[in-house]
Amino acid sequence: MNETIVFAVISLSAIGSISAVILYFVAQKFKVIEDPRIDIVNEKLPGANCGGCGLAGCRAFAEELVKTGDLSKLNCPVGGSETMRQIAEVLGLVAEEKDPLIAVIRCNGSRANAPVKVSYEGASSCAFAHVLTAGESGCPNGCLGLGDCVVSCQFDAIYIDDITGLPVVSNEKCIACGACVTACPRSIIELRKKGKKDRRIFVSCINTEKGGPARKNCQVACIGCGKCVKECAYDAITLQNNLAYIDHEKCKLCRKCEPVCPTGSILELNFPPRKEKAGETLKTTEPVTVE
């Protein structure tokens, strides 16, 4: 009895120590020397592994930062400027101050504005529906409302509004990782400056058809009339392919373009109500509220 125990103890400890020695040498042999700063930088990162920086996860981002030592091309949208400042401190660099961005849905073709003409049945995937058809409203550029962006969002920041059938982005939750921008097969979503007090102005339409056909499918389509272009004092608005686009870098949020738009396709978000009535405009949109 005793012999068995002694034998087992001895043989097991022998195996243990031999393995330990082997492991030690193997570890020495295959040791990877890594810049310790990678770990430090990695710890400062939010760890969401969302890919919003364009790299495969936070670790890869940290490696890239330390390797290149260049902050100008890399940015963590989740952590924002605060995180980037801390990282810059670790690396002994100066971080550029970047305005926070947010995903913006550039389509206002709600069920009321762009009535349904045919009904779609099938896989609930915008990517597939986009291949199959122009969509229920007939607008070839409009939101299909099947929620590929919702699925792509890791931060639960987008949901489809039941009444309008359009996606809504949450101001608090969106970190502008850009996953929805890639997911949308129609490139409706754009990352734009979040703006002070979440105030934003943008053209909520990307339809490039001529005015007539565009309006046929959607009341609030941009018809490319160019009135807003003339109105803008900062050259922030350009007109291309029957479509106006407001450059968010140049826009000063002066609110002059919004009242002149005859179809109401320019949207203002989170501004206080106007004091004087802004002329006779064909405003058909209901006030947009964003949580």
């Binding site: 099938g122 896989a123 995937s125 597939f128 291949v131 199959l132």
Partner: peptide, 12 residues
């Protein structure tokens, strides 16, 4: 809807 997804997959 198997073919819907197959079409999408083929496309991509």
């Amino acid at each position: 809807p198997l073919l819907d997804y197959l079409r999408l997959g083929k496309n991509k």
